[in-house]
Design a protein around this nucleic acid. Structure first.
Length: 463
DNA sequence: ATACATACC
DNA sequence: GACTGGTATGTAT
């Protein structure tokens, strides 16, 4: 069986208002409606799970042959993280698929994948029916792209500092003996893994069970994945130390993006490279041995990509002159904002794999994708994304620094539950958490939505 | 305005 | 032995 999940979302009003008491009153009135919705939802879930489990075994029982083909199709995120070069991806994908079996989760993945395939087919069809002049490169388009490039020419220098396997590294400080064994943080769900474990294909967002199977099978039973429970108190402490050190280098624009990632926007230093090198040594010393990697470039996006290039414990400068060259060589998946789906669309519909191809087929991209997506991709192709695009845009000149959060939410997973009374308790718990968050941040909202995840991983939303 | 999709760590 | 998270944002309808 699986889980069921409830979530409450509450988009902010346009203007943040400080109303210490009014904030909390938003939610309780809506609880009644929420209850009704859950009632309907669980009613559906029964029939759904039944039909699914009835249908499924038939399909898989007979088909063992094309397991690896299926694995490839499901694109069980291959090796594009640091430390995963040159591993046997096919073997790993096969094990993952086999061990995932018919779990509700994997069935859900299949459904989602089928929808993506549908989109691929749809776009391919549109391409078939179009004539080349529909997607030719217009002068207008090239003017726009040149405009982007000129606009970024005199930006300050962006630095992205990214801690190396952060949670794991924190744990390794007190457990150095785990350094050369396959180890990870997290039990049911793996949060980070060390570099030994990554060579077995064990990575973040993977189910613990799968990680254990991978290590066991790929080492012929000689090794066992060591799982350390997560300790967020420790990570937060270390993160605070890191932030304090880094803040000294850029008190004004320094921004912590997550516990293990910091963005800087420093003046046009002459010796950035050395400064960042010192910064990294400084971080290592202050944290008792945690290493980080850094990227230095004209935009946050490029800096972020660059920070990944020499991981772990390395850095890379991409100066304005080499930016284009850098982007052209880049697999599109490396661009923040291009995930599994966009990558697949680009590859299978447009035959685009790299930044260079993205640029060369810019006419096609403009024709096939939604305006916003197209703009984002095209900006990326000339190394200029990060201004009001889908990727979180930090303090870009004109765009009202967009630290305007648009929503706030809390969600929790728990084992399937059909007792309404218990569901209500859960719901109230979540509401309370959210309510406290909102009080703390002094914000109000105008729309409340509830999300329910059923045992078969279907998701329902109600506003 | 709402349901669903995509991406990130 | 089973076992797949949490938060934010964008887009289509």
């Amino acid at each position: 069986m699986s889980n069921s999940k409830i979530k409450i979302v509450n988009p902010y009003t346009k203007h943040k208002r400080k109303l210490p008491d009014g904030t909390e009153k938003e939610k309780p009135p809506s609880n009644k409606e929420i209850r009704r919705d859950i009632g309907n939802a669980t009613g559906n879930s029964d029939t759904n799970t039944n039909t699914n489990t009835n249908n499924f075994p038939k399909n898989t029982g007979s088909s063992n042959i094309n397991v690896s083909a299926q694995a490839a199709a499901l694109c069980i995120s291959a090796s594009d993280k640091a430390g995963m070069e040159g591993i046997d991806r096919e073997k790993i994908a096969t094990i993952i698929l086999k061990e995932s079996g018919n779990s509700a989760y994997i069935q859900q993945q299949r459904r989602r994948d089928e929808k993506v395939n549908e989109r691929v087919r749809h776009l391919q069809q549109r391409l078939q029916e179009a004539s080349p002049r529909d997607y030719r490169v217009t002068d207008e388009l090239d003017d726009t792209l040149r405009g982007y490039q000129q606009r970024q020419a005199n930006r300050a220098t962006c630095v992205v500092v990214d801690m190396d396997m952060f949670y794991m590294a924190c744990e390794l400080l007190s457990r150095p003996h785990l350094n050369d064994k396959p180890a990870c943080v997290g039990r049911e769900m793996i949060l980070t893994s060390n570099y030994v474990a990554r060579r077995y294909g064990v990575r973040s967002a993977m189910a613990g069970l799968i990680g254990r199977k991978l290590v066991e099978q790929l080492s012929d039973g000689r090794e066992k994945l060591i799982q350390v429970p997560s300790n967020f108190k420790l990570y937060k402490e270390k993160s605070k130390i890191v932030n304090e050190v880094i803040r000294e280098y850029d008190p004004h624009n320094m921004k912590a993006y997550s516990l293990d990632e910091v963005y800087l926007d420093i003046g046009p230093y002459l010796a950035v490279e050395e400064v960042v090198f010192r910064l990294r040594q400084h971080v290592k010393k202050a944290t008792g041995g945690l290493t980080c990697s850094a990227g230095i470039a004209r935009t946050h996006t490029i800096a972020k990509i660059a920070s990944d290039a020499n991981k772990p414990n390395g850095q890379l400068v991409v100066d304005p002159v080499s930016t284009l060259e850098f982007v052209r060589a880049l697999p599109v998946r490396k661009i923040p904002g291009v995930g599994r789906v966009t990558e697949k669309l680009l590859q299978q519909v447009c035959n685009i794999h790299t930044g260079l191809e993205l640029y060369e087929k810019r006419g096609l991209v403009q024709f096939l994708f939604q305006p916003a997506t197209a703009e984002f991709l095209l900006k990326s192709s000339v190394g200029c994304s990060g201004e009001g695009s889908s990727f979180a845009s930090f303090g870009t000149e004109q765009e009202e620094s967009s630290d305007h959060q648009k929503g706030i939410s809390r969600e929790r997973s728990f084992s399937p539950e059909s007792d309404w009374a218990l569901l209500n308790i859960k719901l109230e718990e979540i509401s309370r958490m959210l309510s406290e968050d909102m009080k703390r941040k002094s914000v109000m909202g105008h729309t409340v939505t509830v999300k329910v995840k059923l045992a078969n991983f279907d998701v329902l939303n109600r506003a």
